[in-house]
Amino acid sequence: MVQKLIFVLIYNRSIQTARELKTAGNNQVVTNYFVIQSFISQKVVYVVEVKILAKKPNLKEIERRAYMSYHQDGLLDIFAGLYVLGFGLGITMEILWDFGFGVIMPGILIATVLPIWIAAKRKITLPRIGFVSFGVRGANKLMAIFLGVMVAGLGAFFAFTFATFQGGSRQWLDLIVQNGMIIVGLGTLAVCTLFGYSMGLRRLYVYGLLAALVLFIGHFLGIFFAYILTALGITVMVVGFALLISFVKKYPLQGDKAIVE
């Protein structure tokens, strides 16, 4: 492929051709600038723009693709959606029956979903795309983001609360209660953006935006918070199932092809 490109470029003696090839859809193969100094005409030095993956790999893109391939199975979406749905249903049932469902439901989910998610990864994902370990660096990055978000959120909350109480007013707390959905929406957008960026999962941006948008609208239209959570949870789960079906079709289970093995 690369040799073919270089041949075509030298043959045409034109930088323009290189630019045309670049814009004609070879951008995935090519990621780097490569120079061919050709003295075919004895006078002209050809400087050709060709992106060649093998010459200077875009490591961030490769890392992003590795992360993405690991999470393209939709399992993350299904179980994240299940959590959100569980919270929504928990709050709704709590209000309807006042039986402590608001605590029980999320508790059950937190205790059960993670082990099921790990088992599903082992049974569905790993046999299809193989095993990958991102190592301590990857785990540390996610943990650092998670802790950073927690510390920043709690820090901001306590700082504002402390400042408000110093003035002998409950305005700040009242403001939080009155605008809870907007705050949750913005928080969700921030968390989704951070995790989406660090994991290379761009669909998390969409989830964040969707959650923020729906919660904003819900706040102004006075829609019950739990209903919005339930709808969001179902939406994310549906996307997850669609991704899972597509993943299973794209990577069917095959016999052991590993020659090294």
Partner: peptide
């Protein structure tokens, strides 16, 4: 380079 380890299939 960007990961710790992987298997052949990956």
């Amino acid at each position: 380079y960007v990961i710790q380890s992987a298997d052949f299939t990956f």
